[in-house]
Write a protein that binds this DNA or RNA. Structure first.
Lengths: 337, 337
DNA sequence: GTTTGTTCCGCAAACGTTTGAAATGGTCAT
DNA sequence: ATGACCATTTCAAACGTTTGCGGAACAAAC
């Protein structure tokens, strides 16, 4: 009984019947007499037989496992997504195999290889910041394995996608700043090769247009880490025409920005109003609390899994789907005047 | 070529030799002529043959997969541990299968079942807060599958463990508070059925003893979530003999405590000094920054995997090991007077 | 007494791989 | 010519499961 390995053969031997009879009895095949079925079922329960998923996979070709690649798990947003992925996957009888690319293209490629080698039934990916070459993903598709991107998608590839409505979220955030009276708003932006960086900048642009504010090039600055903020933000505060509102591409950057602004003796939101993106734990910890565009990561994870499993099981050739998760602007202390 | 499935048989057929010859050639068995080996290797490269891990598992009994159960992934500390687990596991050629118990005993049991059913080679667990019955873990051991606990361990079971030196960390934190002049220190503690709750309380107790301060029962209060803090802390501030120092069992609770204290118009650290436990992102975001006992979660994850793989591969019967990860007190604004 | 039908069950192949044992073909010494 | 010996290759079984097909046993219909 070691390793919990009761096999169909053990049952068959004990009952003096053949393994195939046991197998059929287990799935209540019409061939099998109810007496035999009962005997099998009884022993199955007694010995706690569980079919070996590995043998099943060998036979059926499906491993009932999905692979996930995220830039890094140590990140509030991604951990909520993974939480959603795990919850729905297990409910659907799938296992989750998990890799992080650590924002490195090489590691992303290696992870794809590892997941493919272990014959996962489908793969979920959120792109690494440094990925500009996508051959490894093409290889997945060529092999006929379903692939779904979430959050940081790959526009070059025709796959199912789940994204947050970055543009609408950013638009709402910046409109809010305008309505609070800001007239000189800076956007600390993300890399423009990622859809999220681009979309959030577009929302920023359109909101300014709506309020007839000029779009000044120097008011869009690449800055999406705390390290960059420590360089960029002090410069901002020295400007002759100091910004009166800042929209940051993520909350970590926003939080660091807040720290720097307070250190400089300026008040938030009175002197400078601040809104971030992503939310989660962070936004309630800062002082003042940080207004932020909330993304429902849990929901995103579930949607991504739903799409993936649909592809896996239906093997449908319907055109690619594009699911958009709604954002919600949470107005808190950093921007309410 | 669909599904990337080049098998050993395909190679054999192409070369007009038998599958077993190919198999042996692949592992450079001494039986095989070098001419044959070369031909096989060439075709293997050309067709990008990769052995099917599922067939391998069926044969060898090992799945090269380890299972991980954590209370929740959406938690800075656990995500660092998982990061360490993933990194070392992949370097060692193992895959990581992943479940969260959501602090629920039922879900924990279900996860154990799922991992066992999928025939993982070993399991890593950090206990759910609500687990007081451990039969599901005994089942793992009875099945001969290696099991390693990390962080929240199970004292009832004789297994390898990786823990943080909670007591020493807490001791250092409270000694620091004493040295900063605190004489009436409160401990917001965790559940005492978990080793971490108990160890941190012990460190608190011993530090007080070292400074000849009385151990007052009402100064140890169960409070390890933000929700509880909102109830407990206001009461504390109303006390006639108001605490001048607080040591919280985790950083989320500490951060909320800080918010409440500031809201009450008291100063940190002048009126009340504050130290948390776990650190991570949080401690730099608050204002003032939060002093905290840092746990090296990444290191803990790696250690746990190291122990587990050792058990899996050596199947050694050496006595259980107990690895202790050192903590480090990071003194920041909330306690430096 | 032969056919036809039913009910229940076992055989064998298959999934991809490994591995000890057996077979093949050849060379060499007796 | 016979046997021994070597290098090289193939065979067959095994891992746990599924499933189409064939077979046995029996009863009913002709």
């Amino acid at each position: 009984m070691l390793r919990g390995k009761v096999t169909i053969k053990d049952i068959a031997r004990e009952l003096g019947i053949s393994p195939s009879t046991v197998s059929k009895a287990l799935k209540s095949h019409s061939d099998i007499s109810s007496a035999t079925k009962k005997a099998v079922m009884a022993l199955v329960r007694k010995w706690n037989y569980q079919p070996d998923p590995i043998a099943l996979s060998l036979k059926g070709g499906l491993s009932k496992t999905i692979g996930v690649i995220v830039p890094e798990i140590v990140h509030y947003f991604f951990s909520t997504v993974i939480s959603g992925i795990e919850d729905l996957a297990y409910d659907s009888g799938y296992h989750v195999m998990f890799c992080q690319s650590n924002e490195s293209w090489e590691r992303e490629v290696k992870s794809v290889d590892a997941l493919m080698a272990s014959r996962v039934d489908g793969i979920l990916v959120s792109l690494s910041k440094t990925s500009t070459d996508f051959d490894h993903f093409r290889m997945i598709l060529d092999a006929g394995v379903p692939l779904v991107f979430f959050d940081r998608i790959c526009s070059d590839l025709d796959t199912d996608r789940v994204v947050v409505d970055d543009e609408a979220g950013a638009f709402e955030a910046v409109r809010h700043l305008c309505m609070e009276g800001c007239r000189n708003i800076v956007h600390l932006s993300g890399p423009q090769n990622l859809n999220i960086g681009f979309g959030r900048k577009e929302g920023f642009r359109k909101a300014l247009m709506e309020f007839d504010l000029p779009l000044i090039g120097s008011n869009i600055i690449k800055c999406d880490t705390t390290e960059e903020a420590r360089i960029v933000v002090p410069e901002l505060l020295k400007r002759k025409k100091r910004p009166d509102g800042i929209f940051a591409v993520n909350d970590m950057t926003a939080a660091e920005t807040m720290r720097i602004i307070k250190e400089a003796g300026l008040r938030i939101p009175e002197d400078i109003a601040l809104v971030g993106f992503t939310s989660g734990m962070i936004s309630d910890l800062t002082d003042p609390t940080l207004s932020s565009v909330e993304q429902n990561g849990y929901e995103m994870g579930k949607e991504a899994v739903r799409l993936l499993i649909e592809r896996i099981e239906k093997r449908s050739d319907q055109p690619s789907q594009n699911v958009v998760i709604k954002t919600r602007l949470a107005v808190k202390g950093s921007s309410r005047r």
